[in-house]
Amino acid sequence: MPKPRYRPAEMAASADDVEAAFYEALQAGDIEQLMACWADEDDIVCVHPAGARVVGAAAIRSSFETMLTGGRIRVTVERTRKVESLSASVHSVLERIDVQTAEGQQHAWAVATNVFLKTAQGWRLVAHHASPGRAEVAEATVPGQLLH
């Protein structure tokens, strides 16, 4: 088993630290470190691009294990927007996803929301929701540009 880069106490110092550890673990294919980023709650939730809602640690772990069997996944986070309080932090990010396949390097984009709560164990991920996107995603900041 690969040695985690972060100890849980270090990782939980801030939501930013947990987010960095989450994406590093995903890129390294380190399922133990990836799951260490998540809260120990029954109702944690994950939605992969074009996927169903996955609820609970066991189901989330299984979904990432399945995803990682296809090979290495490199995710680069861009254009982060944050809403933070003393005990919650919501990050909206644009993810560039690079996957090495038999056909060569493939890439895609996802728009993701990561929700972190400050727990007794420190900051932890409680929700990750990613939707298919594209690099040219325009940010709707003018009233009237929103779809709903």
Rank of each mutant, 00 (worst) to 15 (best):
Arg124Glu: 00
Asn114Met: 09
Gln27Ser: 15
Ala102Arg: 13
Ala127Leu: 12
Ser62Met: 06
Arg134Lys: 06
Val55Met: 04
Gln105Cys: 06
Glu103Gly: 06
Glu41Thr: 02
Pro2Phe: 01
Arg7Gln: 14
Val90Ala: 04
Ile44Trp: 02
Ala102Gly: 09
Gln121His: 10
Gly51His: 05
Lys118Glu: 04
Gln33Pro: 05
Pro132Phe: 03
Val142Thr: 15
Arg61Cys: 07
Leu125Tyr: 04
Ala36Asn: 14
Ala112Tyr: 11
Leu125Phe: 08
Gly56Lys: 02
Gly29Thr: 03
Leu86Ile: 07
Arg7Thr: 14
Asp43Pro: 02
Val142Tyr: 06
Glu78Leu: 11
Glu10Asn: 11
Ser63Asn: 10
Pro8Gly: 00
Ile60Glu: 09
Thr66Val: 08
Cys46Ala: 08
Thr119Ser: 14
Ala135Val: 04
His48Cys: 06
Asp40Pro: 08
Glu103Ser: 10
Glu95Tyr: 02
Ala112Phe: 12
Trp109Ile: 04
His48Lys: 06
Ala36Lys: 05
Glu139Asp: 12
Gly144Gln: 13
Gln100His: 08
Ser89Ile: 09
Glu19Gln: 14
Glu78Thr: 12
Asn114Pro: 06
Pro2Lys: 10
Gln100Pro: 08
Ala52Thr: 05
Gln100Cys: 02
Glu41Cys: 01
Pro8His: 00
Ala57Met: 10
Ala127Cys: 10
Phe116Glu: 03
Arg81Ser: 03
Ala88His: 05
Ser14Asp: 07
Tyr6Ala: 08
Tyr6Glu: 10
His129Asp: 02
Leu146Thr: 09
Ser92Gln: 11
Ala15Tyr: 10
Phe64Thr: 10
Ile73Phe: 02
Val45Met: 14
Phe64Lys: 06
Trp109Gly: 09
Glu41Ala: 04
Arg5Pro: 00
Ala108Ser: 15
Val142Lys: 14
Glu65Arg: 06
Gln145Thr: 11
Asn114Tyr: 08
Ala58Gly: 04
Val18Trp: 12
Gly51Asn: 07
Ala120Phe: 05
Glu19Thr: 13
His107Pro: 00
Val83Thr: 14
Leu26Gln: 07
Val75Arg: 01
Gln105His: 13
His128Glu: 05
Phe64Ile: 11
Val55Gln: 05
Gln105Phe: 05
Ala120Gln: 09
Val111Asp: 10
Glu65Tyr: 00
His91Asn: 12
Ser92Tyr: 03
Asp30Lys: 09
Arg81Asp: 13
Trp38Val: 01
Arg96Gly: 04
Glu84Pro: 07
Leu26Cys: 10
Thr141Cys: 03
Gly70Asp: 10
Ala20His: 08
Gly104Thr: 07
Glu95Ala: 11
Arg53Lys: 12
Ile44Gln: 03
Glu84Trp: 02
His91Gln: 14
Val83Pro: 01
Cys37Val: 01
